[in-house]
Write a protein that binds this DNA or RNA. Sequence first.
DNA 1: TCGGGTTGCTTGATACATCAAGTAGTGAAG
DNA 2: CTTCACTACTTGATGTATCAAGCAACCCGA
Lengths: 153, 153
Amino acid sequence: MSDAAPWLDDEEMSAWLPLIGLVMRLPGALDQSLRRDVGLSHFEYGVLAVLEHAEDQTMRMSDLAYLCNGSLSRLSHVARRLEGDGLLRRYACPTDGRSTLATLTDGGREVLKKAAPGHVKTVRDLIFDEFTRDEVRQLGDMSRRIIARIQAQ
Amino acid sequence: MSDAAPWLDDEEMSAWLPLIGLVMRLPGALDQSLRRDVGLSHFEYGVLAVLEHAEDQTMRMSDLAYLCNGSLSRLSHVARRLEGDGLLRRYACPTDGRSTLATLTDGGREVLKKAAPGHVKTVRDLIFDEFTRDEVRQLGDMSRRIIARIQAQ
DNA sequence: TCGGGTTGCTTGATACATCAAGTAGTGAAG
DNA sequence: CTTCACTACTTGATGTATCAAGCAACCCGA
């Protein structure tokens, strides 16, 4: 924790502005292709994608929210919509009555299958085609370090 | 532009997930302290901050929107609210009747002065205290390269 | 076994972003 | 000097996020 300093110097500023630009523009860019292809936001896609890789394609709502980088409240609203569209199903956890388990439906799996190629292409176009292996590692590493700081707040 | 590839490999994935985490969580983290301190979102703060550094603290709406990483529509709504709160003023451009110029008011300058220390502290806590000078440069550089790709879409 | 505190989730109100459509000014070709 | 395309911006409708509050279920100490 640093004390308040006057402001960012030029060098800091010329990193800060692009970083802000990145975090403000990337979500929209990811949304676009997914909306076009399957009518889902990137967050909704993320929910389904995380479920797909989970044990039994099933997960507690709160774990899912964490892995999707969203609040439980946000996930709850989104899960209601996705359930309405038949892409996932929710049911009470048998071992802990407080918990809700969400699981992928066939419909959800289908949508993922339909969305994946275009989404991967977008991600490659935007990120992985631009960087070397080493740079990619660094990018991930730096992101992790910032996230840790955010969570420490 | 690459062709669609099967999916991301492990190394790519272990950079992609943190990057997504970063872009999804950082805006919220920045919002929080600004909301607490002066009741502004980070986007609203950004609008005022960009104006502050502009010639005559005045700028065309569309240029402002670009620099703030938002759509003109979004800026228009936000500017209406900020104008209502007396933080900026809008008036027709004298040389091009289609354009609208936005300018900071005294109220806006005051809010910025009140918000800045806390905001800078947040930014330092989250980013600049974590990285070396060199890393900061790289972070800025990588962000710029991704933005260029987003805009090329 | 009962009470207080906690956890997990949902809901409802409000605020915000996004999209499509609309208005009006501009510039340039004919 | 008119028309057509384009630019700059605003608006209204719709959808989505966020926050605070609420409700059960659980846990644990007394």
